[in-house]
């Protein structure tokens, strides 16, 4: 019998930046299971981005600890990818070279393999026709897709996404949401997703975590038991509306905490 290790485990995690008196995050206890899609919402400045950075090992916890797949965040980086709010592409690289960047840096694959993986991913996100284009020639939605393809290139088990669709218009964002879920069906990652949009959080997630500010702490954990795959019809359902309303109410309460 194997004991299942949670994908991400927070144990009494607190974070205080050097030089500031008040902690940004305090007493975070969370367990995220493999395959879950977890969204984090909360007022601006409550520490959502900081939380993701801690999981990525880009900043150390002040106290408590985080385990990713049973390892320290630094050691787990190989199976983790980060998607930032703006696409953060390298403007001097073509689309395909941007996608293969992570593979190049990790040197885990020989160049012919890299090209193959890159081509497959570009097909997957529907960008094969602009493989040789430069980022400045792309629309915002296309850039975001390149950035997601880049994150997927290293075959991550865990995806950390910090408001990846915040800069997109609503139509494009909805479409990207559906695409993201479709990709997840195929690839089966665990996702930790930060957003300001309650509807987006509910639509995507199996679990929504509401953070309260000053210091950032978990105010509520909501299970979203809408069945996958979720589609346009999901958005129009009564259950979806109810969940969005309930989450909005919890978020408003969290503001006041």
């Amino acid at each position: 019998m194997t004991v299942t290790v949670p994908e991400v485990l927070f144990r009494a995690v607190s974070k205080r930046f050097t030089g500031s008196s008040a902690p940004v995050l305090e007493g975070i206890d969370l367990s995220i299971e493999r395959g879950e899609f977890v969204s984090i919402i909360g007022p601006s400045g409550c520490g959502k981005s900081t939380l993701l950075k801690l999981v990525a090992g880009l900043a150390p916890c002040t106290s408590g600890e985080i385990a990713v797949n049973g390892m320290t965040p630094e050691n787990a980086r190989e199976v983790v990818s980060f998607v930032f709010q703006d696409a953060t592409l390298l403007p001097w690289r073509t689309v395909e070279k941007n996608v293969s960047l992570a593979l190049e840096l990790e040197r885990s694959q020989p160049p012919p393999e890299r090209r193959q993986i890159t081509q497959k991913l570009l097909e997957l996100v529907g960008l094969s026709h602009v493989a040789k284009h430069y980022p400045r020639q792309l629309s915002g939605g296309m850039k975001m897709r390149v950035s997601i393809a880049r994150a997927l290139a290293t075959r991550p088990r865990l995806l950390l996404m910090d408001e990846p669709f915040a800069a997109l218009d609503e139509m494009t964002r909805d479409r990207m949401n559906e695409e993201l879920l479709r990709l997840r069906e195929e690839q089966n990652w665990t996702v930790l997703f930060v957003t300001h949009s309650v509807a987006e959080a509910v639509f995507l997630s199996s679990k929504v975590i509401v953070l309260a500010p000053h210091p950032g702490r978990v105010a509520h954990v909501l299970d979203v038991d809408l069945p996958y795959p979720r589609t346009e019809a999901t958005r129009e359902s009564q259950e979806f509306d109810d969940l969005v309303n309930r989450t909005s109410r919890l978020l408003r309460e969290a503001h006041r905490l």
Binding site: K53, A56, L58, R77, E78, V80, S81, F82, F84, D86, T88, L90, L101, A102, E104, L105, E106, T154
Partner: peptide, 20 residues
């Protein structure tokens, strides 16, 4: 953010210099 992206993929200082 770009520097952090490189760090996420265990880039060396030489890679961060040369490619970023």
């Amino acid at each position: 953010n770009l520097v952090q992206l490189f760090l996420m993929h265990n880039a060396s200082q030489a890679q961060i210099l040369g490619r970023l």
